[in-house]
Computed example of a mutant assay.
Amino acid sequence: MGIEIEKKYRLTREEAVALERELERSGARFIGEEFEENTIYAGGALDPQRQVLRVRRTASGTTLAYKERALTNGAIKHQREEETRIESDEAIAAILCALGFHPALVYEKKRRKWRFAEAEVVIDELPFGIYAEIEGDAEGIDRIERELGLESAEIEHDTYPQLAARHGVKRDNSIEARFVNQSKSN
């Protein structure tokens, strides 16, 4: 079982540009960027307030993830995360539907990723905003936050699925948060 520990920040475009400059200045190693299409499934015994079943499609492949957030009031979030690569998008969709799950939410994301000290730092652009995340251990997150000048950045407590549900558009039986003019084949 994997435990993901992260802290998320809501950024303005100017703050995102400044963070990228600070990452470059500090010697962080740029890992790359990727476009994602995330489909969140509902149904079964999932508690939508704490559990997520997600299929993520990128140019490098498809993954299935289960996440279960630990209840906490702090800014640093802890959650169980199990993830595996999927060979066939169509097969996993059919399996999940046969088990009683259905696509409830789709959101797109453009992610830029860096390695900084013992943590991963990402800048995510979604159709409804720009966010940064630091993922590592709690002590390292606090130190990196200070080193990158993020102490005054607005903390975002909600997950991307929660934000997408709030800001997305209802389409048939699901909610979608997509970029305008973004091709599904990316």
Results as ranks from 00 to 15, higher is better:
3 I>Y: 10
4 E>V: 06
5 I>F: 07
9 Y>G: 02
10 R>V: 03
12 T>S: 15
14 E>S: 13
18 A>P: 00
18 A>M: 08
19 L>G: 01
20 E>L: 08
20 E>A: 10
21 R>M: 10
24 E>M: 09
24 E>F: 12
26 S>Y: 05
28 A>I: 08
28 A>E: 11
29 R>D: 10
31 I>A: 11
31 I>Y: 06
35 F>C: 07
37 E>P: 00
37 E>L: 13
38 N>L: 09
39 T>C: 08
39 T>L: 10
39 T>F: 06
39 T>R: 09
40 I>T: 05
41 Y>M: 06
41 Y>Q: 06
42 A>W: 10
43 G>Q: 08
43 G>E: 08
43 G>L: 08
44 G>Q: 09
45 A>T: 10
49 Q>A: 14
50 R>V: 08
52 V>H: 07
53 L>V: 02
57 R>C: 05
57 R>N: 04
59 A>T: 12
59 A>Q: 14
60 S>H: 13
62 T>N: 06
64 L>W: 03
65 A>N: 06
65 A>K: 02
66 Y>K: 01
68 E>M: 04
69 R>Q: 10
69 R>K: 14
69 R>V: 06
75 A>P: 07
76 I>G: 03
76 I>D: 05
76 I>E: 04
78 H>R: 13
79 Q>M: 13
81 E>T: 01
82 E>V: 08
85 R>I: 05
87 E>N: 06
87 E>D: 13
88 S>N: 11
90 E>P: 00
96 L>D: 02
98 A>W: 01
99 L>K: 01
101 F>N: 02
101 F>G: 01
101 F>A: 02
103 P>F: 12
103 P>E: 11
104 A>P: 00
105 L>F: 09
108 E>A: 09
110 K>A: 11
110 K>F: 15
110 K>L: 14
110 K>W: 15
111 R>S: 06
111 R>K: 12
111 R>I: 09
112 R>C: 06
113 K>E: 15
113 K>N: 02
114 W>M: 09
114 W>H: 05
114 W>V: 04
117 A>Q: 13
118 E>D: 14
118 E>H: 08
119 A>H: 02
119 A>N: 04
120 E>S: 07
122 V>T: 15
122 V>F: 04
122 V>D: 09
122 V>G: 00
126 L>P: 00
127 P>G: 09
127 P>Q: 12
128 F>M: 10
129 G>S: 10
130 I>Y: 05
133 E>D: 06
133 E>Y: 07
134 I>S: 02
134 I>Y: 03
134 I>Q: 01
135 E>Y: 09
136 G>H: 03
136 G>I: 04
139 E>Y: 05
140 G>P: 00
140 G>N: 11
144 I>C: 00
146 R>N: 01
146 R>L: 05
147 E>I: 00
150 L>F: 02
151 E>W: 01
151 E>R: 04
153 A>N: 01
153 A>S: 11
154 E>R: 11
154 E>W: 01
154 E>M: 08
157 H>G: 07
160 Y>G: 03
161 P>T: 07
162 Q>T: 11
162 Q>I: 07
163 L>W: 07
166 R>L: 14
167 H>E: 15
167 H>A: 11
168 G>Q: 11
169 V>M: 13
169 V>R: 15
171 R>L: 14
173 N>K: 13
174 S>V: 01
175 I>K: 04
178 R>K: 15
179 F>M: 10
181 N>A: 14
181 N>R: 12
182 Q>M: 15
184 K>A: 14
